[in-house]
Every structure is written in structure tokens, then in C-alpha cells.
Simulated assay, not measured.
Amino acid sequence: MSDDAGDSKFTLTHLTEGGHAHMVDVGEKAVTSRRAVARARVRMQPETFVKLAAGDTPKGDVLAAARIAGIQAAKKTSELIPLCHGIQLTRVEVSIVLDGGIAVIDATAEARDRTGVEMEAMVAASTAALTLYDMVKAIDRGMTFDVCLVQKSGGKSGDWRREGEP
């Protein structure tokens, strides 16, 4: 298949020759240590941030619930994302820092496996952000969040880090 930019070739790994989606075979790949960090930034009204920081929200310990939800979600990633492989996670950590009116959620996923853990980290960060939203939406329905991969290591493609992130 050639792209519109010229004669270069590329392969769509999650499609069969007939154009059907399928799970990629990773059986022959080497088992290596893999790590990924994803970040969600939850933006809210200043009054909401103050209540969250003070622990003065109607549904209890929002940050603890969000951390636990993120960890649980990482373990369920292959059930949520259709073509993801089940991975034997060795570690998942979700930390939340309240900084300048924003809740910054970092989710780290680690495994020794044949495929990466980027999706597990992204699902953990996303679910933690959604849980935070759910628990304070009565105060602020206008909250928004974004999620990105911050870094990954391991596997054939090696290490990668988003520019501008610590």
C-alpha cells in the first residue's frame, strides 16, 4: 500500500490483507521489561479546585477513589480496547498532584511481556480523570481533561519521551 506522499510503503499491522481488523500475533516477540507513563490534566473552576484540595467534596475522598479506579482500569485494558493483548502487569501506580487549579494525574504501568503497556497507562490515567469528574460533577459540570503518553521504554521500538515533559 502506498501513501499519498509518494512511493513510500507502509503496513497496517492491525488489518488482514482483506482489510479486516485482527489482533497482531506477538508470540514470536521477545519478553522484555516495558514501562509507560501517561498523564491526564483535569481542569476545573477555581472554586472546585479549592474544595477538592480541602477535601470538602460531597462524595468523600475523591483522590483515593480516582487512584484506585485508575489501577483497576489498567488491569481491564484488554477488555476495553478491542485489539489490545492481555498483559501480565507487574506494577501500576497512579499519582495525583493538585497544581495551579489543575489535577495532574500520572499513571505508570510496568510489565515483563511481549508487547507494550502504553494503553494500560493511558486507560489508567483516563479512568482516574473520569472518576474525579464523576465525584465532583455536582460542583462543576464544566470540567475538562486531556490525556497523553509521556514516556515509554522497552521493546523493539526502544525508549520514547514526549518533548517538553519532565
Rank of each mutant, 00 (worst) to 15 (best):
A66V: 01
A30Q: 11
L80G: 09
E118I: 07
D113P: 00
E93L: 10
G142M: 10
E28W: 00
P166M: 10
D61F: 04
T32M: 03
M1Q: 08
G60L: 05
A103V: 09
Y133H: 11
T144G: 14
T32N: 04
T48Y: 03
T90Q: 08
V147W: 08
K59S: 06
T11L: 15
I105N: 06
E79D: 15
L89M: 05
L63Q: 01
G155K: 00
R114I: 06
A107W: 06
S126R: 04
K29S: 05
S95K: 12
T127M: 12
K137M: 01
T144N: 15
T32Y: 00
A107Y: 00
E79M: 12
L132T: 11
K152D: 02
V136F: 09
K75N: 05
G27V: 01
D7C: 06
D159I: 03
T127P: 06
G101F: 02
V92N: 03
G164Y: 07
A73K: 13
D4M: 12
R162M: 11
R41T: 10
R43G: 11
H14S: 13
R41A: 12
A103W: 04
L130H: 11
K156S: 07
S2H: 15
R161C: 01
G154I: 03
V136A: 12
G6T: 08
E165T: 13
I87V: 14
D159Y: 04
L15M: 08
G70A: 04
Q72T: 07
I105V: 14
V136I: 15
I71W: 02
S157D: 08
P58V: 03
H14A: 13
V123C: 13
A129Y: 02
G101E: 02
M143Q: 11
Q45H: 12
V97N: 03
G158L: 07
R112D: 15
G142N: 14
T57Q: 08
V31N: 00
L130M: 13
K137A: 13
E165V: 13
G164K: 11
T32W: 00
P46K: 04
S33A: 15
H14K: 11
Q88D: 11
R67W: 02
A129P: 01
V147I: 15
L15C: 09
A103F: 03
G155A: 05
L130G: 15
V123T: 12
M122Y: 02
V37Y: 05
G70S: 03
C148F: 12
G86D: 11
G116E: 02
I96D: 01
V97M: 02
G154M: 02
T77M: 15
V31F: 01
G155W: 00
V31M: 06
F49D: 00
D4Y: 08
L52H: 09
M143N: 10
R34M: 02
T115C: 04
T13M: 14
Q88I: 03
Y133P: 06
G18L: 03
A54R: 15
A138F: 06
H85T: 07
H22F: 14
S33Y: 14
G155R: 01
V50W: 12
V62K: 08
G60N: 02
G155S: 01
L89G: 08
M1L: 09
V24A: 10
S78I: 02
T16W: 04
T90C: 05
